[in-house]
Design a protein around this nucleic acid. Structure first.
Length: 282
DNA sequence: TAGCCCAGCGTCTCTGAGGG
DNA sequence: CCCTCAGAGACGCTGGGCTA
């Protein structure tokens, strides 16, 4: 694997490092557009273009912004590429959003010679949702373009919307850095929200510094479905994970996938409990 | 506050593929 | 063979921030 490929950490890492880091470099969620530097505005504009397009070369991305004027297009392509890969000037290297991990190389274009194609990383997607103040409609577009990257969630987006409606946009909470592994979150006590959410993070705790994109997509997907269990106190009769039944009844594959996770978590807690139970002070 | 440093930007140049 | 396209490398100016 080439050294310049960024590595990702798990969601804890996103919350503790990548997200604050990205805020510091490219702007905070509630920051007014006018207070952003030119550079930050350029980065946010590029991220927005990337969020609604599949893996593209820098030339393609520029062409989307400036379709007709060839000289302006060349300038824009230059800007986009510098923002992405950084620049090596006067013997010095400055980082682009590729180095931070908001975007990654994905595939090559062979149109003329060989050129790299770029798309948002999973964290790049979360950053967009976190910071760019996107409408639900815009999030739908991201889901469509990035369905292959997050198949269990974005790949089933329209289906999920028919089942849980607006609650699909709960993904915003994750983008905002809410891991929801906090025992103080108030839910009906019959729903194992805290237990499962904690297990989402326990399962991947070894991947704090390094996680494959597939596994990260899995972790995000588990977070997403467990988050659907969240109900404020009162007002419904569901217990356990049965409130997810409407989603699973038409998608046995998904159900199977989630049940494996659910049983893993039971096994985990069972084993930990057994250890505690055996432990005594004489 | 003058001087310095450096990131950002516009621009020029280079390269290699491909079309006419 | 020349031209354009698509992508990359490099140069010089500028303005903002830091410091002596």
């Amino acid at each position: 694997m080439p050294l310049d490929d960024p590595t990702f950490g798990n969601l804890q890492n996103y919350k503790l490092y990548l997200r604050p880091n990205a805020h510091a470099h490219y702007g905070h969620p509630d920051q007014k557009k006018s207070s952003l530097s030119k550079h930050q505005q350029n980065v946010q504009r590029l991220l927005k273009v990337m969020s609604v397009n599949e893996s593209s070369t820098t030339w393609d991305l520029a062409k989307i912004s400036i379709p007709d004027d060839i000289t302006k297009l060349r300038e824009r392509e230059k800007i986009y590429r510098r923002l992405l890969v950084g620049r090596k000037d006067k013997g010095k290297h400055s980082d682009g959003i590729l180095n931070l991990g908001l975007a990654i190389k994905d595939g090559k274009s062979l149109k003329t010679g060989i050129a790299d194609k770029y798309r948002l990383s999973l964290y790049g997607i979360l950053y967009c949702i976190d910071v760019l103040d996107l409408s639900n409609n815009e999030i739908d577009k991201i889901a469509k373009k990035y369905s292959k990257v997050l198949p269990k969630v974005f790949g089933k987006w329209d289906y999920l919307k028919t089942k849980v409606g607006e609650r699909v946009y709960g993904i915003k909470l994750l983008a905002n850095g809410l891991l929801a592994d906090n025992p103080q979150i108030q839910v009906k006590s019959e729903i194992p929200f805290y237990e499962l959410m904690s297990y989402v993070h326990l399962k991947y705790q070894r991947n704090f510094e390094n996680i494959s994109e597939e596994n990260l997509a899995e972790q995000i997907s588990y977070w997403f479905y467990v988050n659907l269990l969240y109900r404020p106190m009162g007002n419904n009769n569901d217990t356990g994970i049965e409130s997810l039944n409407p989603i699973f009844q038409d998608d046995p594959e998904l159900k199977k996938w989630f049940l494996i996770f659910f049983r893993d978590s039971i096994k985990y807690y069972h084993e930990r409990y057994a250890v505690l139970k055996k432990s005594k002070i004489n």
